[in-house]
Simulated scan of single mutants.
Amino acid sequence: MCRAIAADPALVRRYTWTDRLVAVVSDGTAVLGLGDIGPRASLPVMEGKSALFKQFGGLDSIPLVLDTTDVDEIVETLVRLRPSFGAVNLEDVSAPRCFELERRLVEALDCPVMHDDQHGTAVVLLAALHGACAATGRDLPALRVVVSGAGAAGIACARFLVAAGVRDVVVLDSRGVVDADRGGEKALPAAQTNPRGVRGGLAEALAGADVFVGLSSAQLPEGLLATMAPGPFVFALSNPDPEVHPDVAARYASVVSTGRSDFPHQINDVLAFPGVFAGALDAGARRITEGMKLAAAEAIAAVAADGGAVSVDRIVPSPFDPRVGPAVAAAVAQAARRDPQVSAGR
């Protein structure tokens, strides 16, 4: 086999595991609920992620924790290691470095790269919104959405909702509504949306809003829920403590979701990332595109709606539903094959 690969490097896909191997890469600077704990302390999380790849996507993976926060060094390290893996899942890298790091790796590597904290969350959120709209008879593009939190997940979710056709998205950070004057990554969603020019803080943003998406530690006072549009959707996704307790939110909201497994409608990335990477690798894709992620969200929503099962009590499928991973992988692969720019030409 070694001689065969030396004569034809493409045979490495047939004779080694690299074609189905995902590198789970972190510097340990933004571990969920723990913050900057460093690479060694983050390793159990990365090992857990690898187990999820195998269980839900049928993919081999290897956790790689790097003892550096320098973007140049991380990029160089992964470029040197490229012959050993087929895709890169970035995990728990702090903002705003995570945006630059992902962009640089996409440019430097000829394989799929995705920061799951950004895009996995965005994919499942969009799937949940599709389900909530189907259950309540609402139109996705017409929703007024408020995203509380302008970190990696918040900015990615805002951008992705805009890509999906939502026209009115207001993003807030600790200083209030983010506008285009902020500069950097935070300015991009503000420049693309917020057509009503909302300014101020959470109170101003939530007045008449249809959807609250919580991706920060900021609390959502009960009084502000009463100012939203009738029957809103409340997605309080912070872990371990949601921005508002689901029982409180349910007094006003038609649909309530959290990021926790002990409450209904968990927005769990495991619904997305195993199938996204499996589909990308199945298709020989060099990139994970917006179209592939949109296809993933639609596939998750379709599984929830299969047989008319979608309702205000079930807007996303269970993470343990065996249909989810294959459905997402098939949809992502199909989307990738329709786009010749992402094909590896296998």
Rank of each mutant, 00 (worst) to 15 (best):
G154H: 01
H115P: 10
G35K: 07
K49D: 05
A152S: 14
A229R: 01
A327P: 07
G275F: 00
V12W: 00
P326C: 07
P326K: 11
A95C: 13
D110E: 08
G325Y: 00
V234F: 10
V166D: 01
S84C: 13
R338Y: 08
F53S: 03
T29I: 09
G223F: 02
A249G: 10
A190Y: 02
E204C: 01
A299F: 09
P39A: 12
G345E: 12
A209T: 00
R260L: 10
Q118F: 13
P317H: 00
S311N: 05
A283R: 05
R287I: 06
G201R: 03
P230M: 06
D27T: 01
A331F: 13
V65S: 12
C2N: 14
R104C: 14
K186S: 03
R286M: 03
D19Y: 15
A87W: 08
V106N: 10
C157M: 07
D67G: 12
R199V: 13
S238N: 06
T136V: 04
L126A: 15
G35N: 05
Q219A: 15
G197K: 11
T289G: 13
E100M: 05
V124N: 02
D60N: 12
G137A: 11
C157G: 15
P39M: 03
A142D: 13
L109G: 03
A304S: 08
P319C: 06
R104I: 15
H115T: 10
D179A: 03
S50Y: 03
G197C: 08
A283Q: 00
P340F: 02
M46Q: 11
D19I: 07
L188H: 13
V198W: 02
P141M: 07
F277E: 03
T193R: 03
V234M: 12
F273S: 09
P189Y: 10
D181R: 14
D27F: 07
P141K: 04
S238T: 02
G231H: 14
A30Y: 08
T69A: 05
L215A: 07
A95P: 04
E76A: 15
A156H: 08
H130L: 15
V162N: 11
A329M: 05
P317T: 04
P141N: 04
V22F: 04
L281V: 09
A250R: 15
A4C: 09
V25G: 05
V276G: 02
L188G: 02
V324W: 11
E298L: 11
P246I: 09
V113H: 06
P112H: 10
A226W: 14
T68E: 09
D92E: 04
L220C: 04
A297F: 06
N194S: 01
L78C: 08
H115Q: 06
D210S: 08
L32V: 04
D262N: 06
